[in-house]
Design a protein around this nucleic acid. Structure first.
Lengths: 152, 152
DNA sequence: ATTGAAAGCACTACCTG
DNA sequence: CAGGTAGTGCTTTCAAT
């Protein structure tokens, strides 16, 4: 159940190199291939590893613009939250949605081609989200860094 | 250079299933294994695919708390920004750092075990970042959703 | 924890339209 | 030039030690 140092080492490597071969991973973890393989299977089965994914280059795909959108709802009732969350999950440009503590605020992370494209997303999708009282958008000038690797 | 519909299909699949075998990916893209393999190699070489990574379960690893930290610097000179960015990149709990448009503001995304652990990170790392004039932390109560998949 | 063996896979070289 | 066919050597995976 609990992770030892070898498990954490495996997870650290997999977080950076998700397509590494089991043979190479075993070397990095100083294990035999089969022992390493069994640990990885255990870590996957127990849910430590949620997914393996390819990370694409947002610039190359013409989506270099990141916008954080702060949204205040008109009410905090559960059904209002639920309706909002269901609707926001259907907007492809929204990569993250967090319910914030304190007020009934959400923060969305949105990607777009440029400010004009964001204006379109805003008009076409965001203004149609249910239960919204206020919305404020903050544009990222530049992503200094971004990682999916948790400190394990 | 430009992507056709088959390329985008491959990228969509790889964004969800980064460890899919080439054989299965070829089936999903209705291509032969070799044709598919060559396309993937091209997409990697041209930089559309930045990385393959494992996404871990932050809850299982006792890091369920996400905090957005807004930081205003005391000056906007390049060397002040650079010093700040270099220092913030060394804090393991900081997963993202964005320079925001308009003011000299940064937004950080930070993960922690709980509010107490965040207090420690704040005290130990964030208060020591150079050039900071103001700092405001907003806690996420709940991550509604989070994806790394860009809309391609 | 290592070994060995069977199956599946990646990758290449070589054709085909 | 992109896709298909076929062959070689690795990797995975499981069973046995």
């Amino acid at each position: 159940m609990a992770l030892d140092e070898t498990d954490r080492r495996i997870l650290r490597v997999l977080q950076r190199r998700g397509r590494i071969s089991n043979a190479e991973l075993a070397t990095e973890a100083t294990l035999s291939a089969s022992a390493c393989h069994r640990r990885v299977q255990r870590l996957e089965a127990e849910g430590y590893v949620r997914d393996y994914v390819a990370l694409l280059d947002a610039r190359k795909l013409d989506l270099p613009t990141t916008v954080f959108v702060e949204i205040k709802l008109s009410a905090q009732a559960d059904d209002v939250l639920e309706a909002f969350e269901t609707a926001v999950a259907r907007v492809p440009a929204v990569l993250e949605c967090h319910l914030m503590a304190g007020t009934a605020d959400y923060i969305l992370k949105v990607v777009a081609e440029d400010t004009e494209d964001f204006a379109r997303i805003h008009r076409q999708y965001l203004t149609r989200l249910p239960g919204v009282a206020q919305m404020q958008s903050s544009f990222a000038l530049r992503t200094v860094f971004k990682t999916t690797a948790l400190p394990v």
